[in-house]
Write a protein that binds this DNA or RNA. Structure first.
Lengths: 174, 174
DNA sequence: ACGATATGAATGAATG
DNA sequence: CATTCATTCATATCGT
């Protein structure tokens, strides 16, 4: 899910293993577990939300991991698990017509921010992450209710560098 | 001093607690995490120890949270996390003076990991079972997403508290 | 006030 | 795909 309200801030794209020091002091990396970088997360989310990737095949996983590898060490299983978890965790609920309107009104024209439904336990996770608009829009699989929000498409056929750039549609607490 | 009983004297569901954190989240919503009240804790423990509840299902969680809601605001995820944490934390032992592994990590040591059957991608992960790669070919290539997609923002793991929209995220390191 | 501890929350990894 | 385990971060609260 993505209500990253305080989640361990992933370090910068330190094209390296999970060393990085998560904002603290950590020596042993022991490859305990994959610590995705911000870029990796971003790309994964884009694949998930924008492209609608849910259960990539082996080949797809390879490609994705290969692409993400530029931003940090990653393995196929990481990609696999990520999608699995993401899907299981905040499944977009396909028909999320609800669109919980977080916030009172679109003071800034955000519109309604939809939050993930989560699995069984219900309850919307704390809306509003660190940033305002954030929170993780989980939808856009089929229901596109043309929101006023404009989105920019990222190039896919591009080579490495310019993966995409999360468009900042929200005017951060203007 | 019980390590697991450091319960703070929570008060009744009145005020004082986190005001409307979820209601109005400005920049810093300080995501006041759920602070269980004494009654809630008591009930949860009863459910855990007496009734043996360990991993309530969605329905169970709903019921529990509904019941606990009378003693203070609570959400399904709180119940879920509570049981998860409680089980993970105080699963076996009971009272122990401290001895908490604070700042410690890597106390374990995976000797020989039981490598499972390798899968398509490259790592040990569930093999078979899914119909992936079978007549699928649902690669991202054929996925049409460029039709006026309404996009959702992907949160950013940064402290984007300041204005940022004008920042081109392109790797134009110059 | 600061540091230690307890614990809520998040998520990667694993299993059924 | 659903559920659970494991690990880690973040923070409220208490002790000093």
């Amino acid at each position: 899910m993505e209500p990253q309200q305080q989640q361990q801030h992933q370090q910068q794209p330190d094209e390296d293993n999970n060393g990085g020091a998560k904002g603290s002091f950590l020596c042993r990396q022991t490859s305990t577990r994959w610590t995705p970088t911000a870029d990796q997360i971003r790309i994964l989310k884009e694949l998930y939300y924008i492209k609608g990737v849910r259960s990539p095949n082996g080949a797809e996983i390879q490609q994705i991991s290969a692409r993400l590898r530029k931003y940090g060490k990653i393995e196929g299983k990481n990609v696999f698990y990520w999608f699995q978890n993401h899907k299981a965790r905040f499944s977009s609920s396909s028909a999320n017509t609800g669109a919980v309107t977080v916030g009172q009104r679109d003071i800034h024209g955000y519109g309604s921010v939809t939050m993930q439904e989560k699995t069984f336990w219900d309850c919307p996770v704390p809306a509003g992450g660190s940033n305002i608009g954030a929170g993780g829009g989980s939808m856009m699989s089929n229901t596109n209710y043309g929101s006023g929000i404009s989105c920019t498409v990222f190039d896919q056929d591009q080579e490495a560098d310019a993966e995409i750039e999360t468009l900042p549609l929200f005017p951060m607490h203007g």
